[in-house]
Amino acid sequence: MSSRLSKLIRNENMKIYRRSRTWIMIGILLLAVGLLSGIMKWDESRIDHSNWEQQLEQQNLHMKQELTDNPDSGEEYSSYLTKQIKMNDYYLEHDINPQQLSLWSYVSQSSNLIMLVTILTVVIAADMIAAEFSWGTIKLLLVGPASRSKIMISKYIATLGFAVMLLLLCFAASFAAGGILAGFDGLNQPLLTVSNGMVHESSMIIDTLQTYGFSVVSLIMYVTMAFMISSAFRSSSMAIAFSLLFMLLGNTLSALLSQYSWSKYLLFSNIDLTRYLDSGTPLRPEMTMTFSILILVAYYVVFQFIAWLLFTKRDVAA
């Protein structure tokens, strides 16, 4: 039973990776990583690094002055300044130039490209079912000893596989670019954070994986939505157009509508879970991480159910 499903997944993979379009997408992603890394390196090279220690000391002086001059400028601001001073002291003490990019700077910047990975995967997902109808191959695909549900599952898994492949590629390419541009000796460099008046060292890999992880949540939601749209439309260009439209308009829309309390139930208002981290602010004050996760799960189930219903219950007449 499972071997049959794995064969179906291999079929779907063959149909993804034997198309030249897929390789153009992979090329675009690699190009984007290269471009981003190149620009970062170029930007870094314009800064004069010779007297960074003096600069940091000067900064600290300024900030300390600020703290004593305006003691009532607000809790947030003053704690920000104290943190910054602590960090700078740590840099000076350990002879770390914060302006100098390390391998991990490149890798953590690459998480911005997960948006591109999402767009590329949405294109693939939107095409996954609709293209079979466009090509007319759906008939022979369905007339076989595999139920429609199994065919749908195999297509969904192959789509997620494509997303995972792109994410790994994005990570690996930026890691390689970082290593080449900044040297691989930065590999063990820790992530520095200040809490309770102390500077803490933690793993850069875990922090990067966390950033990737949050982006994967929105990736899965967008891809699942595109997959549903794909089984609703029987033309691939329509499915791709609508999926990208929803995805790109969604964020703007949820920001515009955030003044209305019902907007918290929209998919796009909940899709960015980083809002609930220390550094973020929720779209609406009453929203919490748990609430958003529940809403996302509900949307996920509904998307999958509609996609399944549309794919398995409709007649293939044309």
Partner: peptide, 15 residues
Amino acid sequence: HVGAIVENPEMYKFL
């Protein structure tokens, strides 16, 4: 038990 051709057999052209 079944083999089928439904109208013109549409194949994957890129394969």
